[in-house]
């Protein structure tokens, strides 16, 4: 019993401290972050198991990506330092091309999840919001961990990185886009043209 009252006292204290820290704006809560990822993974798995054609699935993934993810931030981060020399028009074109490219590339990976189950396991607080953890299980196999970074830094609650067994999509794509740009002599327009069809 003593433990119980200690716990409730501690959580009350946590609540008060939390209210002070949170300030006037309604900050992203752990429950909201988990809910966002629950809805996102539901949408992904509904698409995977819909039996649609590959092309239709990629269009669905692109809709899901733009609905739940902070695409402008992810795109700009993936461009690395090259974003500093890009014009606003180039940034818009790049972001659009990047969104299609990511939807095709990761849509292809997600298609391998057919028949698997996903379950949101909880979340840890991070500097920018929450890291929501989920388990993907194929029948008779060890589950693997997919984690999602969620933040309201853009003004809305958005996902901005997917980390599969420790491998960050954001980091991988920054390296990949960096290699693409290098190979095209640093020409952003050539990069954009390439991304329109790449997967």
């Amino acid at each position: 019993m003593r433990i119980k009252s200690l716990l409730s006292r501690r959580s009350l204290l946590g609540l008060i401290v939390g209210l002070f820290l949170a300030g006037p704006a309604a900050a992203l809560s752990q429950a909201q972050a988990e809910k966002l990822i629950g809805a996102l993974t539901n949408d992904i798995f509904r698409t995977i198991n819909s039996g649609k054609s590959e092309g239709a699935m990629y269009r669905d993934f692109e809709k899901i990506f733009s609905k739940y993810a902070d695409v402008p931030t992810i795109a700009s981060s993936s461009l690395g330092v090259a974003r500093r020399s890009a014009t606003p028009a180039q940034m818009r074109a790049y972001t659009k091309a990047f969104q299609g490219y990511v939807s095709r590339k990761y849509g292809k990976r997600f298609r391998e999840f057919i028949g698997a189950k996903i379950e949101v396991r909880g979340a840890r607080q991070t500097k920018r919001g929450y890291l929501v953890s989920s388990d993907v299980t194929f029948k008779g196999k060890k589950p693997f961990v997919v984690e999602w970074q969620v933040s309201d830094a853009s003004g809305r609650d958005k996902m901005f990185d997917i980390i599969i067994e420790g491998i960050s999509m954001l980091r991988l794509e920054r390296e990949e886009i960096g290699s693409m740009l290098d190979r095209r002599g640093g020409d952003i327009n050539k990069l954009i043209a390439h991304l329109k069809t790449a997967s």
């Binding site: 992810i74 981060s77 500097k127 920018r128 933040s151 901005f160 990185d161 067994e165 960050s168």
Partner: peptide
């Protein structure tokens, strides 16, 4: 992946921060 395996979890200090 190897660092994730060894640590048993993602190290929160190593997370990407595009903001």
């Amino acid at each position: 992946n190897r660092r994730f395996d060894i640590g048993g979890t993602v190290n929160l200090d190593d997370l990407e921060d595009p903001y």
